[in-house]
């Protein structure tokens, strides 16, 4: 497990870049999100499976946030969330055709991680509070809030799903960009935990 401030230390010692919890949560999120999104868009009118997929996404977000405070160094928010100057400084070097070799999330990627967790949380919350007035797909928390709130939640749920799809596409585009342009493989470490 990498520790300390030297971002090269883990790499030199051949330590684990992404711990097993981060990796399992990442790929579980891929499956749960794809299932929830696909069922929401193309699934049956009785959305029980979409609900379960959504609960799973919610659980993954909660666990990831907890892990962001108690997990190992590369998983912790305190280690990768950076201020505007660090983000701008990293972004300025982004077009260079060489690997970034960041040990963990780079400052721009960190921005994305926080953003996607926030939007996922909003999406799960809006689903839990939605009342589509079809009497079979009512969010389990809709009965505890006002009718207006249930309708606001309903009107947010679909635009947020589109936003999340765009975020996924940006995420994949960034991976392709790092691989093709910068010659850096980001996928293998998320599977094995180690840099290839």
């Amino acid at each position: 497990m990498a520790s300390g401030d030297d971002t090269r230390r883990g790499e030199i010692s051949g330590a684990v870049l992404w711990d097993p919890v981060v990796r399992v949560l990442h790929w579980a999120l891929v499956l749960a999100f794809a299932t929830a999104w696909g069922l929401g868009k193309f699934g049956p009118d009785q959305m029980t499976l979409h609900f379960y997929a959504g609960y799973t996404v919610g659980a993954i977000v909660v666990l990831r946030v907890i892990w962001g405070f108690v997990g190992p160094r590369t998983a912790r928010f305190a280690s990768f969330v950076r201020g505007p100057s660090a983000i701008v400084a990293y972004a300025r070097h982004l077009p260079e055709r060489r690997p970034s070799r960041t040990w963990g999330h780079n400052p721009v990627g960190a921005l994305f991680v926080v953003g996607v967790l926030v939007v996922l949380a909003m999406q799960v919350a809006s689903g839990l509070l939605s009342d589509p007035e079809d009497y079979i797909n009512v969010g389990p928390l809709a009965k505890y809030v006002s009718h207006e709130t249930t309708q606001t939640a309903l009107s947010l749920h679909e635009p947020l799903s589109t936003l999340l799809l765009i975020m996924v596409l940006i995420h994949i585009a960034a991976i392709v960009f790092y691989k093709r342009w910068k010659g850096e493989n980001l996928v293998t470490p998320m599977i094995t935990g180690r840099r290839s």
């Binding site: 049956p44 009118d45 009785q46 589509p132 079809d134 009497y135 079979i136 309708q151 309903l154 749920h157």
Partner: peptide, 18 residues
Amino acid sequence: GQLGGACKACHDDYRAKS
């Protein structure tokens, strides 16, 4: 399930969300 599904199918395409 069938009845609620009929509500949903129409709300999805013919009713605005707000």
